[in-house]
Computed example of a mutant assay.
Amino acid sequence: MANIDSVRAVGIPVTDQDRAVEFYAGTLGFGKLMDAPMPQLGGRWIEVRPPGSAVTVALLPASERAPSGVDTGIRFTTGDAAALHAELSAAGVDVDELLVWEGVPPMFDFRDPDGNVLYVSQS
Rank of each mutant, 00 (worst) to 15 (best):
M1S: 02
A2I: 15
A2H: 15
D5V: 15
S6E: 05
S6K: 13
V7L: 14
V7Q: 11
R8E: 15
R8A: 15
R8F: 14
A9V: 14
A9W: 12
V10K: 04
G11Q: 12
I12C: 05
I12K: 07
V14N: 10
V14F: 03
V14W: 14
D16F: 08
D18R: 14
D18S: 13
D18V: 15
R19C: 09
A20V: 08
A20E: 13
V21E: 09
V21S: 07
V21P: 02
E22Y: 02
E22W: 03
F23C: 08
F23Q: 03
A25L: 02
L28F: 10
L28H: 13
L28I: 10
G29H: 09
G29L: 05
G29W: 00
G31L: 10
G31E: 07
G31T: 12
K32H: 04
K32D: 05
M34R: 07
D35R: 08
A36F: 06
A36D: 09
P37A: 11
M38G: 05
P39T: 06
L41E: 09
G42S: 13
G43T: 01
R44K: 05
R44S: 06
R44P: 04
W45S: 00
W45V: 01
W45N: 01
I46V: 15
I46Q: 07
I46P: 03
E47N: 12
E47R: 14
V48Y: 05
P50N: 01
P51S: 13
P51T: 03
S53R: 01
S53D: 15
V57E: 02
V57P: 01
V57D: 05
V57H: 02
V57R: 02
V57K: 06
A58M: 13
L60C: 05
P61Q: 00
A62P: 00
A62V: 03
E64R: 12
E64Y: 06
E64T: 15
R65N: 11
R65W: 06
R65D: 13
A66N: 07
S68K: 04
G69C: 03
G69I: 05
G69P: 10
V70K: 11
V70E: 11
T72W: 12
T72M: 13
I74T: 12
I74M: 15
R75N: 12
T78E: 00
T78M: 00
T78I: 04
D80K: 00
D80V: 03
D80S: 06
A81H: 08
A82C: 09
L84P: 02
L84H: 03
H85Q: 09
H85M: 11
H85C: 11
A86G: 08
A86V: 00
E87A: 15
E87I: 01
L88S: 03
S89P: 04
A90D: 08
A91I: 03
G92N: 05
G92W: 02
G92T: 07
V93H: 10
V93R: 07
V93G: 00
D94L: 13
V95M: 02
V95C: 07
D96W: 09
L99W: 00
E102G: 06
E102H: 05
G103K: 09
V104L: 12
P106W: 03
M107R: 04
M107S: 11
F108T: 05
F110Y: 09
F110D: 14
R111Q: 06
D112V: 12
D112W: 12
G115A: 10
N116A: 15
V117A: 11
V117W: 01
V120C: 08
Q122I: 01
Q122S: 01
